[in-house]
Nucleic acid binder design. Structure first.
Length: 484
RNA sequence: GGCCCUGUCGUCUAGUGGCCUAGGACGGAGCCCUCUCACGGCUCAAACCCGGGUUCGAAUCCCGGCAGGGUCACCA
């Protein structure tokens, strides 16, 4: 059977890391198994959903390189892919359930419900300010088995699912969590449709997954508990449920579920701004919860080949910025330099080098700094001085390497450099050694004054590469400036 | 609090009864390489939550504690 999986974010903000990983695993699974990856927008929370968030999520996925086969922008055989555009469908399904006695209109007011919840909580000894959910309140609406009068039918009501009264437990086999069971008496008559006719998650999710012929629902483990009412809904509707895979959560440094509220690193685009490569982020989040033997580094192509839900663990993972950084460093130094040049370009522009373009010089700069940069931001900062005219020399570096002796040496180097005909690293590198042999000076006593003169500091790639990158004209200009 | 899930170095993990003197990676310490900084190479420190069973033998199976997380809405 061809897998049909989906990622169904609710557009209440940027794409967050947990969502990105859910999308990634679904996408990898579809790509590996020749399946279809569906993107669905769950915007039934009218309070918090915004069109800007939809765009932010789409852009986040695009940046990561996660493409969808059906959904916003691309369409598909089961439209619409945005829940608010198919309200009529949910109403229709709800009506069907009501007519079959599997759901009912509840005319209780919100105030009555709140009061009942509060009274129950207080009877359990909870006080004002406590979390009333702890009381284990289950609402038994007086309308559960009542027949509404014609007048009532004219007024609005929520629609509740009539949870069957049964003994014992029921459960399901999860591809990640294995068997999970729960006692029946744990469940409540949950709300299908709000008073305004807009469906709630547990309902719209089931209707859509069915309508879109989703056969594997892979989502975060925070949803395992909602799987039970959803399963009851499938049964009541006579629909066959999909398979499930509930992935472990990603935790913040404080060990709590990574949330937009408390954890800035939850924002996918923050990592882009920080100079993280998309494939590095993908590599990192894939390893949070999923593993393949002792391997750590995976290209997207390898991920597509190796990923499997059976290798996803059950333990939550803590966000580890150092590991991300190290994985990013790996992909910076091993990716095609031209691709890195393209990636670093916007950062270079932002750093104040608007004239930079992807050319031979930038690629050379990338080669010079790719082993020295953990992020694109860092690389841009390091590359920038090679694009300016002249350079400011750090006081400490000058004091250490451009004293009387240093300047004398620099003068000698200058004379030698004047005779160089081809300004290439291969020709420039040996000069340090030649002078060392001629004068008896240590290589460091030669390279460092030169390095400080042309870069302004004590740190740079090999001296030959540094000079070549600068170009003859600029290098000589800086040497002259240091000498004067 | 009820219910559900989890518990191997600080972190991510390998490990599915003997291959474990518990392996890898990040981070940490040190050494080597070296014109600087990096990269790279090598070495070291660092873990089976606790207690009972089962077994000739347990990180691996069972039970009980403890700890952590999730969830209990007219949010998703």
């Amino acid at each position: 059977m061809m897998p049909r999986v989906r990622f169904a974010p609710s557009p209440t903000g940027y794409l967050h890391i947990g969502g990105a990983r859910t999308a990634l695993f679904n996408w990898l699974y579809a790509r590996k198994n020749g399946g279809v990856f569906v993107l669905r927008i769950e915007d039934t929370d009218q309070e918090r959903s915004t069109p800007e968030s939809v765009q932010a999520i789409l852009q986040g996925l695009q940046w990561l390189g996660i493409d969808w086969d059906e959904g916003p922008g691309v369409g598909g055989p089961f439209p619409p892919y945005t829940q608010m555009e198919k309200i009529g469908r949910y109403t229709q399904v709800a009506e069907m359930l009501i007519s079959e006695g599997k759901a009912y209109r509840d005319y209780s007011t919100e105030e009555e419900l709140t009061a009942a919840r509060k009274a129950f909580a207080e009877s359990k000894g909870l006080k004002e300010g406590d979390d009333f959910r702890k009381a284990g309140f289950k609402y038994r609406s007086p309308w559960r088995d009542a027949t509404p009068t014609p007048e009532q039918l004219q007024t609005t009501a929520v629609v509740r699912f009539k949870m069957p009264d049964r003994e014992g437990k029921f459960g399901f086999d999860d591809m990640v969590q294995k068997r999970i069971d729960k006692p029946f008496d744990d469940f409540d008559d949950f709300v299908l449709l709000r008073k305004d006719g807009i469906p709630l998650y547990n309902f719209s999710c089931v209707v859509d997954d069915h309508d879109m012929e989703i056969n594997l629902v892979a989502r975060g483990a925070e949803h395992v508990n909602s799987t039970f009412p959803q399963l009851m809904l499938y049964e009541a509707l006579g629909w066959s449920p999909p398979a499930f895979a509930h992935m472990p959560l990603i935790l913040g440094p404080d060990r709590e579920k990574l949330s937009k509220r408390r954890h800035p690193e939850a924002d996918v685009m923050l990592h882009r701004a920080n100079g993280i490569l998309p494939n590095a982020l993908l590599n990192f989040i894939a390893r949070l919860g999923w593993g393949h033997g002792n391997d750590e580094l995976f290209s997207v192509a390898q991920l597509k080949e190796l990923f499997d839900f059976t290798a996803v663990g059950k333990t939550n993972g803590v966000w580890n910025p150092e590991k991300l950084s190290s994985i990013n460093a790996h992909w910076i130094k091993t990716s095609d330099p031209k691709a890195i040049a393209e990636a670093v370009l916007p950062f270079l522009h932002a750093a104040g080098v608007p004239e930079a373009v992807v050319d031979a010089k930038l690629e050379k700069a990338v080669m010079g700094f790719r082993e020295r940069s953990k992020t694109l931001v860092e690389m841009a900062m390091k590359v920038k001085p090679y694009y300016t005219r002249g350079v400011t020399i750090e006081g400490e570096a000058a004091a250490k390497h451009l004293g009387l002796e240093g300047k004398q040496m620099l003068g000698r180097i200058r004379e030698t450099l004047l005779g160089v005909t081809t300004w290439r690293a291969a020709d420039l590198d040996p000069i340090v050694k030649v002078i060392s042999e001629a004068t008896g000076a240590k290589m460091g006593a030669i390279a460092q004054p030169l390095r400080v003169a042309v870069t302004g500091g004590t740190v740079s790639p090999g001296i030959g590469d540094t000079l070549e990158l600068l170009g003859r004209e600029e290098a000589m200009r800086r040497i002259d400036a240091a000498l004067s």
